[in-house]
Design a protein around this nucleic acid. Sequence first.
DNA 1: AAAATAGTGTCTTTCAGACAGTATTAA
DNA 2: TTAATACTGTCTGAAAGACACTATTTT
Lengths: 299, 299
Amino acid sequence: MTGEQPHSGTAAELAWLASYDPRAYTPVAVTVDVVALTLRHGHLYVLLVERAAPPYQGSWALPGGFLRAGEEGLAEAAARELAEETGLHAADAEAALSRIHLEQLGTYGAPDRDPRMHVVSVAYLAFAPDLPDPQAGSDAASAAWHPVTGLDLRPHTGHPQAAGVPVDTHGGGVDGHTGLRPDGAAPITLAFDHARILADGLDRARAKIEYSPLATAFLQHDFTIPELRAVYEAVWAEKLHPGNFHRKVLSVPGFVESTGTTTERGGARGGPRARNYCAGDAQLLHPALLRPTREDEIH
Amino acid sequence: MTGEQPHSGTAAELAWLASYDPRAYTPVAVTVDVVALTLRHGHLYVLLVERAAPPYQGSWALPGGFLRAGEEGLAEAAARELAEETGLHAADAEAALSRIHLEQLGTYGAPDRDPRMHVVSVAYLAFAPDLPDPQAGSDAASAAWHPVTGLDLRPHTGHPQAAGVPVDTHGGGVDGHTGLRPDGAAPITLAFDHARILADGLDRARAKIEYSPLATAFLQHDFTIPELRAVYEAVWAEKLHPGNFHRKVLSVPGFVESTGTTTERGGARGGPRARNYCAGDAQLLHPALLRPTREDEIH
DNA sequence: AAAATAGTGTCTTTCAGACAGTATTAA
DNA sequence: TTAATACTGTCTGAAAGACACTATTTT
C-alpha cells in the first residue's frame, strides 16, 4: 500500500502517520512457518526443508517464508507455503489443499531468534492426509517428511519466555522419550527455534484431537474406526483399548457417519472386514475423547 | 503489490532475493495489542484507549503499540504496553504485574485491517484483578475500563477453542444479542478489527477457566469460594449452582488452598462468613469445571 | 423474625475404563 | 487350525447436576 511516501494530509495526520512509518524504527521481518503433520505407516511425520544458505546451512527447518506485504493475509501465506513445499501447486492443489486443516499455532518473536535481524514468525499448524513425497524440480526440491520421533525437540535457544504460546508446560527436561530414533541414530536438531515451535505444534495437536474431530483430517475421505484409532495412538503415543474406543467414537454425535460399505479385505494379520465411515458434521466432540494416562497437573 | 511498480521476476526469484534482504519486500509493521480483562462489580471489563488521531479518531481501541525491534520480545512488549496503559509503570508495577496473567492470544494480519499499511498485530490476553482507574497525566490519560456488555462484538465463525485466527475470513454478520448495554445506550464500536480480537479473547477466557485455575487471577491473593464463583458467572454469563460449585472446586486437587481464616463479615444481604482460600499449585484442573449450557456443536 | 447465603448430604444419570465374549478373516 | 482383529455386552467407579437441608449472618 504505502510503500513510499505517506500521502499528504493535515499536520496531525502526518505526525501520526509518521509514527506508523516502519522506517522510523529498526525494521522487523514477518515470516510464516508451517508445522505440517501427517501420518505414515502409523507414525507421525512432519514436513521439513533443508536450508541451503546460512545461518543453519544444511540444517532442517520448518517450511516457511516471508509474508508478502499488502498482498496476502497470514493464513493465505501459510497455505501458499504449504502448497509450494509439498509440491501441491500443480493441478490438484485445489482439491488436496481443501482437505488439509490449517490453523494458527502461535507467533514467535524473540529478538535473537534469528541472528540476522529481528524476525517475527507466525506459525501455523496443518493436519494432512498421507501425501506423496515432495517432487524435485520445484521449490520443494529440498523438502521431505520426517518422523517426529527422530527429531530433537528440546529447546536450545533458551530465551526467557520468548513468544510464549498458551498454556504449554513444555516438559523441557530430559524427557528421554522424544528425540530417540528407532534406528538409534542421533536425533536431528532443527534450525532457529523451530524445535520449540514443533513441540508447541505437537502439544496443540495432542490437545486438539481430544475435543475436535480433526483427527479425521489425517485420513482419506473414507476410513475405518481402527484407522481412526491409529491416528489417536500415533498422536498421543499411547495404546488405546480397541473396544472402548470403538464404542466411544460411535457414541459422539456428528463425529463419524457410516457409509454403508466395508473394507475389501480384513486386517493384515487377520480379523473381519471393518465398516467404512466418513467425517460427520460436528465441529466439537461432546463428550470429548479424553487422553488416558493424563499425568495430572505439572508444577 | 507494492503500490509502485512491481518487481519483475518470478516468485522464486523474489524469495531468493528476500533471503538476502527482507527489505526487498513492501514493509510490514508489527504491533502488539492487549485484551486486558478484569472483574468489577461482578461484571467483566476490558481496558480500552480512545484514539486521538485518524483513522478511527475518537473510537475506542485495544491498547497496543509497535514492537521495539531488536529490543524486546512479544510478551515483553505486551507487558510494557499493559503497564503503560494501566498507569502501573510506577513503583508498584513490579508487584502488580506479577499477579497479572498474560498469554498470547493470536495474530491478525489481513492486508486491509489497517487502511494505512499492512500491519500485523500480535494480540495478548491478560487477566487482572480489580485495578485502579488509569490516571491522567500519563500515557494512560485516555485509557479506561469498559464493561464488555456495552461493546459491539460481531459474532465470529471461528472454532470456539481455536487459539488464534480461524483460517476462514469471517462473514461479518450483524447480530443483536451482544452489544446491548444495560442502560440501553448504543453499543460502542471498536476501531480496526479489535471487536474480532476482543471476541476471540473472550472466547479464549471462557474456555480457559474450564481447565486452568486462571480464574483466580481475577481475584486478590485471598478469596472466598463465592467470589470465585462470581468470576465464573461473569465470564460465562451464567448462573451456577452455589452448592455444586462449592463442592466441585474443593474436589479439584491443587485448585485452592485454605488459609484457615474467614471473612470479617457475612454477605451483604445476610448469610454466614465465608472461609478464605488462595490459589493452589495446580496448573491444570482435573477434572475440569465444565461449562453448563454448552449448546453442542456449531456447524 | 425474615431473608439471604455458606456449606454439606444424597440421589440419579452419564460416562470412562476394565473385561469378557462372539463373529470374521488371514496365514 | 490358530491367531488376530472388529465389534458388542456388561459391570464398576467417578463425577456432574438436581435437590434438600442445616447453620450462620444481615436487615
